[in-house]
Amino acid sequence: MNHLLQIRRELHQIPEKGFEEVKTQRYLLNYISKLPQEHLQIETWRTGVFVRVKGKVGDNTIGYRTDIDGLPIEEETELEFSSTHEGMMHACGHDLHMTIALGLLTHYSSNPVNDHLLFMFQPAEEGPGGAELMIQTEVFKRWKPDMIIALHIAPEYPVGTIATKPGLLFANTSELFIDLKGKGGHAAFPHQTNDMVVASCSLVTQLQSIVSRNVNPLDSAVITIGKITGGTVQNIIAERARLEGTIRTLSVESMSKVKARIEAMVKGIEIGYDCQATIDYGCMYHQVDNEEQVTSEFMKFVSTETDVNVIHCSEAMTGEDFGYMIKDIPGFMFWLGVNSPYGLHHAKLTPDENALDVAVSLLTKYINFKGTA
């Protein structure tokens, strides 16, 4: 079996939640320990790993980031190497992401380029967010790269396709949790209560007007309430209700405006339904804004390769905390086609593993080009 396939399948079986990637970190460290160590420097941070490949000259550092956590989804692929962790799955392709990073690291551990290389195995991309914390570490500051690269699998594109664009690629994202507390009571005496099921339903309806009536039609934003909980049994009026959702915008300004409108509407619910409300935005991710020059250069480089096809794609409302890493450092993310009939975060996601060789081959050529320039 191709060694990349073996790595991917072994990692696929051990998906773990953010900052709980203990087995994953152990697997990574064990694999890295078997590589030639002459050019490697290894540091751990929580459940993540930094690996520096010392360059022959070392004037600059090229960073490469991969995420390592899984999702709380029960796998339904029926693969022989399905997840062995009940209720967890690598349903966003992070097993492929890690495999590609290890493939590159394997090559460069024996074949360093002029520049230093910094491989970052980042925990908690799916939440609560590891990138922003990882770049605040002393290790990152000491080995800070001059540019950073990352990729994300794309089920909708065929294998051999690379899709990206200069500028905005992924949206600003924020979780949204709203808790309402009123006064419960017997279903026969509603006039003695403040019903939080009714209040929460009213609030959900009001929230849908924010995008349509407060965001510029030429801009884009999404508010999704994906979960509502409230009440205990059918004949008791609910004292509490909880709304859980997400906010996505294509500009920082729109995110601020949307949150301001949410807060105003929640204040109105408090007054109108005589209740108390709290808002928690949970995990927030900065937009992935690809640096214009390095992204254009990468796309031009890929266009010269005969075995891959580069596409100038549109921005997406997906979120990725890699945006924090390229907020102040030039870098870019790109989509890697994996041709799956099921999309990201689906219990039956089955990426085409041929994409592994495509990515490792292309990125080796690109890093050789950048690292010896």
Rank of each mutant, 00 (worst) to 15 (best):
S303L: 13
T173E: 15
F19I: 05
R46Y: 13
F322G: 00
E78M: 09
D195F: 00
G226M: 12
E80N: 09
Y285G: 02
E20V: 02
L40A: 06
T44S: 14
E76G: 08
Q6R: 13
I100E: 01
A124N: 03
L118I: 05
I329D: 01
P15L: 03
A260P: 07
H152D: 01
H94K: 03
V358F: 06
L180S: 00
R213N: 07
S314G: 13
E156M: 11
T364H: 10
K348E: 14
A355R: 11
V266E: 00
G167F: 09
E353Q: 13
R242W: 08
Q25W: 13
M325R: 01
P128W: 05
G127V: 02
E320G: 00
I279L: 12
K165G: 07
T66W: 05
Q37N: 09
T84P: 05
P190A: 10
P166S: 12
P158E: 14
A347W: 06
Q192S: 09
T246N: 09
K56G: 03
K34A: 14
G58D: 04
Y157G: 01
M1V: 10
S82H: 11
G48D: 04
E43A: 08
Q37Y: 12
I223P: 00
E132D: 11
L168C: 06
Y342T: 06
E78T: 15
Y342F: 15
I14M: 10
E291H: 14
F369I: 11
F322T: 00
F81K: 12
V51S: 09
E21Y: 13
F19P: 04
P72K: 08
S33A: 14
C201W: 01
P36W: 09
V266F: 00
F298E: 00
F170P: 00
E78Y: 15
V294S: 11
W143P: 02
T47H: 10
N30I: 04
L169K: 05
F140E: 04
L203Q: 00
V310S: 14
